[in-house]
Design a binder for these strands. Sequence first.
DNA 1: CTAATTTGACCAGT
DNA 2: ACTGGTCAAATTAG
Length: 278
Amino acid sequence: MASPRMKTEQSFEFGELSAQDAMGSASESSYGPPGAVFGVSPPESSPRGRNNRRRDRPSWVKVTYTPYFDGHLWRKYGQKKIKDAEYPRDNGQTLNGLDLGGLYFRCSYRGDRQCMASKLLQQKNGDDPPLYEVTYTYEHTCGAPPIPFPDIVAEPPAASAEGLVLRFDSPGGHGGDAQIMQQQGQYQQSTSRSPFMMLSFGSSCQTHDQQQPAFQSDLEPGSSSSIPNEGPPAPPPANGDGDMFPTWDSFTYDFDSHVHFGDHTRLPYNSNYGCDDF
DNA sequence: CTAATTTGACCAGT
DNA sequence: ACTGGTCAAATTAG
């Protein structure tokens, strides 16, 4: 074959979406595009850009400490050193000795469900617990509900302590709480392959039924953001079934005392395996 | 063996 | 022309 590249990408257009979340400040973040319109036609047209100009693509930014834990399974499909990126990635570490400023991920179900959700990770600062800016593009159309995860409470190292204490509180009492002492720039790596931070918790992943038609998200329990998607904004905590968490992607950063982010996910993008393993 | 990750190249958008 | 974003082949890990 002489066709080296055959790309079949998205092609629907959106009005205009810009990152209005956690812009430069880790005060709040949302997983779902604040004003995005979902449920658009599937991709089927110009291969790589045409109707879906980069500018027209729905995207929203999220600042988090756990870019890899957002409740969805991602597959890395590329990385690029962004010119403006000052920080390569994890605590100054490089991937295979490579300095990169952006990691590109796409939904693992893209091939199966034509889910074109993707995200771009960019380290925001070089702090000890590096802050990442995650630029999400397109909503998840795979229908895969975000994987429940306990709330994470990151407390800054004590006056004399050097480690970072991460507390995983389970909202619904899923028995998912653990304390991880993170030593200076020493994340626990699961596999020799994944250069990213991986934390192991003893939380049991719930068998998330596929009742969720489509992934939902909300900013905060208090602010009823209007997501023109469907269904009410994340219902109360997993009181009964535990389908979803209230603040799935809410994340509050308190420099005053501690970091609070309900950014839950289960496993690193490392694999496709869902919670069925737990 | 299968699947995911890595890496360089290519293409599109700005 | 440059940068960013995506793909696809190769490699590695599980």
